[in-house]
Design a protein around this nucleic acid. Structure first.
Length: 293
DNA sequence: TCCATTTGACCTTG
DNA sequence: CAAGGTCAAATGGA
């Protein structure tokens, strides 16, 4: 379970990179669409092609091994009503819920009004900075769903959100649904890895909490995490070819054992876990909200 | 003091 | 009306 899981972990990473690339490209696409200019026609065209490539690649990779972060890519825009309002206003002071203030809070973006795609992964981390704004127990599901919005929602009007839910069938995996693309200035926001780590990279399973060995392996994985993505990609590419053959008839679900960064910053794993899913089970006990990483 | 999370209430949608 | 999504007061850590 070393080499195999290592490969998987790496592959997982590739998938995440792809998904992230897709997201960023979409963002570029949005930017381009905001600027009408003759010269941009070609650029838009290219962006579209790039997106297509991402989709193809992701799909192809996913078909190799469903276990990896499978991108169910929905890419759809459904409803649209109450579009405009990023509703940055009512955040701060406006009449705080003093009684039923009907209509004031309306127009939630409940339906994915923008691009959405789902990724199943053991890793919650990505290049963006997220802030948790809610958690809810979903009907017929064992684990609660956590809601995150871009940290810069109010400062830059970024509408990106994501929902994270632990998979019942595979507790080590999370179903991460990204809704909307980031419109925030990710440069100053997320020098990659560091500030964006936040609560996202929490992938501790209750079992893992009890298993120091797993935690250690996670740390090891983190080492070559974020450091050499490019070489990793190359490596993975080669490995993937081999991997595919090896695993054509091998579909074990246990994956990477949470190759997260949960431990990256030496955070208490219990806190991490509770931060994401609030140990929603029963625990009426005060949950540690120390999620910051 | 600032900022992030928790959590229950509120709101929309089907 | 139920379920899901969001808001924002309360709370706690740095």
């Amino acid at each position: 379970m070393d080499i195999a899981s290592n490969k998987k972990a790496t592959k997982l990473k590739v998938m995440e990179q792809l998904v992230q690339g897709h997201e960023l490209t979409t963002k570029v696409q949005q930017l381009l669409s905001q600027h009408e200019s003759a010269g941009l026609g070609l650029a838009k065209d290219l962006v579209e092609k790039i997106l297509g490539s991402f989709n193809d690649t992701i799909s192809a990779l996913d078909s190799f091994e469903p276990i990896s972060p499978s991108v169910t890519a929905v890419e759809g825009s459904q409803n649209a009503s109450c579009d405009n309002d990023g509703k940055l206003e009512d955040s701060g002071d406006s009449q705080k819920r003093l009684g039923p203030v009907k209509g004031k809070r309306g127009c939630y973006n409940r339906k994915k009004k923008s691009e959405t795609w789902t990724v199943e992964s053991t890793v919650l981390e990505d290049a963006f900075s997220w802030r948790k704004y809610g958690q809810k127990q979903i009907l017929n599901t064992k684990f609660p769903r956590s809601y995150f919005r871009c940290t810069h929602k109010y400062t830059q009007g970024c509408k990106a959100t994501k929902q994270v839910q632990k998979l019942e069938s595979e507790p080590r995996m999370f179903s991460i649904t990204y809704i909307g693309n980031h419109t925030c200035n990710t440069n100053e926001v997320t020098p990659k890895i560091k500030p964006c780590i936040h609560h996202d990279e929490i992938i501790i399973d209750s079992e893992e909490l009890k298993s120091p060995s797993l935690m250690t392996s996670m740390k090891e994985e983190n080492h070559h995490h974020g450091s050499s993505t490019e070489s990793d990609l190359q490596l993975v590419w080669q490995e993937m070819l081999v991997f595919e053959e090896e695993h054509h008839h091998h579909h074990e679900a246990v994956y990477g054992c949470g190759e997260t960064s949960a431990s990256i910053n030496g955070l208490d794993s219990a806190d991490l876990w509770s931060a994401v899913f609030g140990l929603a089970t029963v625990s009426s006990s005060p949950i540690s909200n120390d999620v910051r990483i």
